[in-house]
């Protein structure tokens, strides 16, 4: 091991997997070995059995589908509004001066604190869940994109000007492509955060979703189901992250070249 020395992709996969194995081993040791009471923590085997039951008897697949749809719905709405605004803010300093203080303020408002208000305004239906995700994501995306676009290499902008580019050309053919990979990274990051908001939104006033299942299981002290739910969230996150990364790499080959 030396600083910044790369590893091969095989080694990377092996190390990553090794941690999961270690994690499950520790968990098994704690539960099967009787070091932790069954009431507090189910063992891996029970967890899997409970999971199979959830999927086969309680329609957990539908819950998973609902949660995914809520995350994506709220996130896509936020992105549609936030990406153009962020680009405008990054490109035009007066727009930035106008919006930046408010967005910075709004960014620190915890989305979960809005849940009671949103229930009051939008009821406990789907709209309320989408709005929680929306509020949690939109300000973060705006601000991060504004910073990225604003940090575009000045020399590239100047080169484009000397080649006859006008303002529209600068935005569309310099600012946007140069920050596109970063924008994709920002979206990947914020999508991860959106998952944490959705579960909170589903813990309160919901009749479906992974978060709802977790509250139900809590009432029955079924730690196996709770852990299964959490692991499902983690797996979905892992898969979506992987897809996002692969998509970005495919979209921006010049970054890797």
């Amino acid at each position: 091991m030396r600083p910044l020395d790369p590893v091969t992709s095989k080694q990377r996969a092996a190390y990553g997997l090794a941690f999961f194995v270690l994690f499950v081993a520790l968990w098994s040791w704690a539960t099967f070995g009787g070091h932790v009471s069954k009431t507090f923590l189910a063992n891996p085997l029970t967890m899997v059995q409970e999971g199979v039951e959830l999927l086969s008897k309680h329609g957990f697949l539908f819950d998973i589908g609902m949660t995914i749809w809520r995350v994506l719905g709220g996130f896509v709405l936020a992105a549609i509004i936030a990406v153009p605004l962020g680009v405008l803010m990054g490109a035009y300093k007066p727009v930035e001066a106008f919006l930046e203080p408010f967005v910075s303020f709004a960014r620190y408002l915890p989305a979960s604190a809005f849940i009671p208000l949103l229930i009051l305004w939008a009821g406990i239906g789907e709209l309320q869940k989408l709005l929680v995700i929306f509020i949690g994501s939109v300000f973060q995306i705006i601000l991060m994109i504004a910073v990225t676009v604003g940090a575009t290499r000045r020399d590239l902008v100047e080169a484009a000007y000397t080649l006859g580019a006008r303002d529209r050309g600068i935005i569309r053919r310099v600012l946007l492509p140069s920050s596109a990979p970063e924008i994709a990274e920002i979206l990947r990051l914020v999508l991860g955060w959106a998952w944490t908001y959705v579960i909170v939104a589903e813990l309160i006033g919901s009749s479906s979703g992974i978060g709802h299942m977790i509250t139900d299981s809590q009432a029955l002290l079924n730690t196996g189901q709770i852990i299964f739910g959490i692991i499902v969230i983690g797996l979905i996150g892992l898969v979506s992250d992987f897809l996002f990364k692969a998509f970005n790499a495919w979209l921006f080959p010049w970054k890797l070249a």
């Binding site: 020399d155 590239l156 100047e158 080169a159 000397t162 080649l163 492509p177 140069s178 596109a180 921006f252």
Partner: peptide, 15 residues
Amino acid sequence: ADRGMVFQSYTLFPW
């Protein structure tokens, strides 16, 4: 565009 410029630093568009 009537005055073309080549800069001291590398300024090709990487994308």
